[in-house]
Design a protein around this nucleic acid. Sequence first.
RNA 1: GGCGUGGUGGCCGAAAGGUUAGGCGGAGGUCUGCAAAACCUUAUAAACCGGUUCAAUUCCGGUCCACGCCUCCA
Length: 469
Amino acid sequence: MTLTFFNTLDRRRQEFKPIHEGKVGLYTCGPTVYNYAHIGNFRAYMFEDLLRRTLKFFRYDVTQVMNLTDVDDKTIRDSRKAGLPLREFTGKYIRAFFEDLKVLNIEPAEFYPAATDHIPEMIEMIRILMEKGFAYQAEDKSVYFSIDKFPEYGKLAKIDRENQLSGVRIRNDEYAKDSVADFALWKAWDEADGDVAWESPWGKGRPGWHIECSAMSRRYLGDSFDIHTGGIDNMFPHHEDEIAQSESVSGRKWVNYWLHCDHLMVDGDKMSKSLNNFYTLRDLLDKGYKGREIRMVLLGAHYRKKLNFTFEALDQAREALRKFDDFFRRLREVQVPGAADDATKKILADALNAFSSGLGDDLNISEGMAALYDLQRELNKRIEGGTLSAEGAEAALALFREFDRVLGVLQVDASAEAVPEAVKTIAEARQAARKNKDYAASDRCRDELKALGYVVEDIPGGGYRIKAL
RNA sequence: GGCGUGGUGGCCGAAAGGUUAGGCGGAGGUCUGCAAAACCUUAUAAACCGGUUCAAUUCCGGUCCACGCCUCCA
């Protein structure tokens, strides 16, 4: 089983080789907590969850760090607008963020460092950069990183500085910097910051955005680690700047594999408030969709491709999951005695193989899911034909549990919801009417059940089954 | 303007230089009092124009379209 990733660093697929045998250090850019995260944000977190789960599926011991950006222009601006202290303001959205992660069944990372809890680490890094001559304090008292001092600048985004600058207008307020592309490590305090400020060797102020990630990854993962991920739009300048800072501090290669996920679109357009296609997770839950249905949609496309989010896709996901639920129930009900036959063992082994090679191939989720559907069809045939034994069914269920360690959307062992007595009574009455061939009465019972939100399915042999709609 | 990604059947979405992706939906059938579920069968494709090749949806070039980054938006 090999694991291959498309590394943005050189735009090629590469076999994954961790720094430390069997272990993976993973840094994932987290949310800026100034509002509820929207489903576009969650596409990235879902991709990172799939990555994390796949690494674990391949038996790696994963240490994931996801930062919480709780101090920046937006958090400061909006907390002041709300008339709340920064921490109180961001706390609300941090709590919401964790609730949302739970709804989507996203596995928790090992560390969720908040920027405001790591100011000393950031100051320390800036101090080293100053000492080594990579940074300077400008007239405006802010500290900037001088990209002229880092010749490899642009190696991730493949940005040629000459080209890049030719198209960018130089703004008047950037006069303080030596070069327009230099970025802030430490921002000197100004009016707009209110009471948000920390003391530093360069005066009162707050950290720049990029240094947050560099400092927190260094604290929890060291000077070099395996994988850094994020949305494609953070590739430049954010990730490029992180590389410049981190590698200048340590003098070593910082990250071995960079993985970037593409955007989520809604109805073919970029999500925006003006198009009225801007959804938070909560908006979708309010419309009656379940977390796992949304997760299923978000899992639907390869992470490096744009994912078009539609309500039709949500409905399709719901249907596919319903069929799985039904399928697992049928597997659990298999009564045929005997051990699993070789042919069954083989299709299970083949499915595991196909699933693993799909996921191992740069997280090709579509191939992985195809393996599940193929297996489902094969097993259905066996159930239908009565050739699947209870032991075979149990082996199949165990395999689907294994798949779900990666997917996190199946409910292999979901117990049926308790059916109210009233419903049972009507269903029983219907069965009695059917036995008497009073089909008009039988159909009336079915209508009553439907009104209560239940359907009844007859099983060959005289039994029936009640299901919630 | 510079750089980059992509356009696959009604919808979603893979792989591969020649051999069925898969899912949802549709059609026909088996089963059923009817229905549902399940199973079987099946149809629908590769933006456009050139080129390379015995063979291209798959490689190359161009056109059109969409999207992204260059403006601290995943």
